[in-house]
Amino acid sequence: MSNVEKYQQAFTETFGLGEDQLADLKYQDVPEWDSVGHMNLMGALEDVFDIEMDIDDITDFSSFEHGKTILKKYNVNV
């Protein structure tokens, strides 16, 4: 599975969304991406990419798109 697919899957599985709903998705756009959903998503991304994220990056992770920029810091290209 490519990184893009892994990244999308973390979102679709955590929030129960379709891939077509991800492109403009931002924190708190859907009820599932609340603070608890956010922790689940961060845990899923850490596991799938085998990284340990800093709290500042976890706080800053505000959208599907912006998340890609954050993951670059951990040498994950999505």
Binding site: S35, V36, M39, G43, E46, D47, I51, E52, M53
Partner: peptide, 12 residues
Amino acid sequence: LASFGFLCRARN
């Protein structure tokens, strides 16, 4: 409770 769980994960 979720925050505490998040703190306790092995990766953290």
